[in-house]
């Protein structure tokens, strides 16, 4: 619910009935929607950002959950529409960069509707295993139904898990991927440490995530697209413009390429590199555990 208040808007998110974003009440003061909004970077120990809003750390997970419960059914269609199908190439690039082999054990974290899992499942073969993990039950259900419809059943496990505290033994996986999921995690450093722990020595983490475009012109065009067009597509297709407004904001609040690389190194990853894709709109970070 958006209530105009002078030059600003009081944003009330009260239950599912209002904006589908949350099941709890959050009151925050933000400027008018769109590019004019200024991100609030006053994160303290107990607060974090949810798009451009500052919220309690304990609340973010449920707010993000609200977004994905809302968009789960239209997630794949929206991905194709929003990226003009290019997300398929970004994911292919991730799989090619993973160097996956038959027999590998792969964790597709925040795996959502299972695009990466489907490919990994075929490449690791009968001797390998893929775990599709997501914090959101709706996304996991959509993913499970989709993969089962494709006949992919023999080497895939489904786990509802929080990236910050992964419920797996240490040194379990050869590869961990997290595609378009890390920016929604409340404590990214904790999640990176948790991923590091479950990777086998020699294993690698691949993070595919929206990032900072390299050129100013691309950045401006991208800003215009994300704040003006994307929420409208979301409103028409998924009947939820607010969730796609959050998407645009959360991308801007996500650490840029170098910052994320530093965070990976701080978590213990070695030989950390990143590759910008489509002018830096998306970046693929890769790091090893030795």
């Amino acid at each position: 619910m958006f209530i105009p208040f002078g030059k600003t808007t009081i944003n009330l998110l009260i239950g599912r009935g209002c904006s589908k974003l949350s099941t709890i009440i959050v009151i925050s003061e933000v400027k008018m929607s769109g590019q004019d909004q200024k991100p609030q970077k006053n994160d303290s120990e107990n607060t974090t950002h949810f798009g451009y809003k500052t919220v309690e750390k304990t609340d973010k997970a449920s707010m993000v959950a609200g977004v994905f419960h809302s968009v789960a059914q239209q997630y794949d269609v929206m991905n194709d529409l929003m990226s003009f199908g290019v997300h398929r190439l970004w994911k292919r690039f991730t799989i090619d960069a993973s160097g996956v082999r038959p027999g590998n054990t792969v964790l597709d974290l925040a795996g959502g509707t299972g695009d990466l899992t489907a490919k990994f499942s075929k490449l690791v073969g009968r001797d390998g295993k893929v775990v599709l993990a997501d914090i959101n039950s709706s996304m996991l259900n959509v993913g499970r139904d989709k993969l089962r419809d494709k006949g992919l059943v023999q080497n895939i496990e489904y786990v509802q898990a929080n990236a910050e505290s992964l419920p797996f033994e240490e040194n379990t996986f050869d590869i961990v991927t997290i595609a378009f999921g890390l920016r929604n995690v409340t404590d990214k450093d904790k999640a990176l440490r948790s991923i590091y722990s479950v990777l086998k020595p020699g294993g690698r983490l691949l993070i595919l995530e929206f990032s900072k475009p390299e050129h100013e012109l691309v950045n401006k065009a991208y800003d215009f697209y994300s704040f003006n067009i994307l929420p409208k597509i979301g409103q028409i297709v998924a009947k939820d413009g607010d969730s796609y407004q959050y998407l645009a904001e959360s991308i801007r609040m996500h650490p840029d390429q170098e910052t994320l690389k530093g965070m990976m190194e701080n978590a213990g990853f070695e030989q950390t590199t990143y590759k910008n894709l489509t002018g830096g709109v998306v970046a693929l970070h890769k790091g090893y555990k030795f």
Binding site: I95, V100, L123, G125, K150, G151, Q154
Partner: peptide, 20 residues
Amino acid sequence: FSVYTSSKNNQILVTTISQS
């Protein structure tokens, strides 16, 4: 070119992974 077979469908996957 990797061959994937299952009870439901058989297909060839094309990647740039050469290690295996």
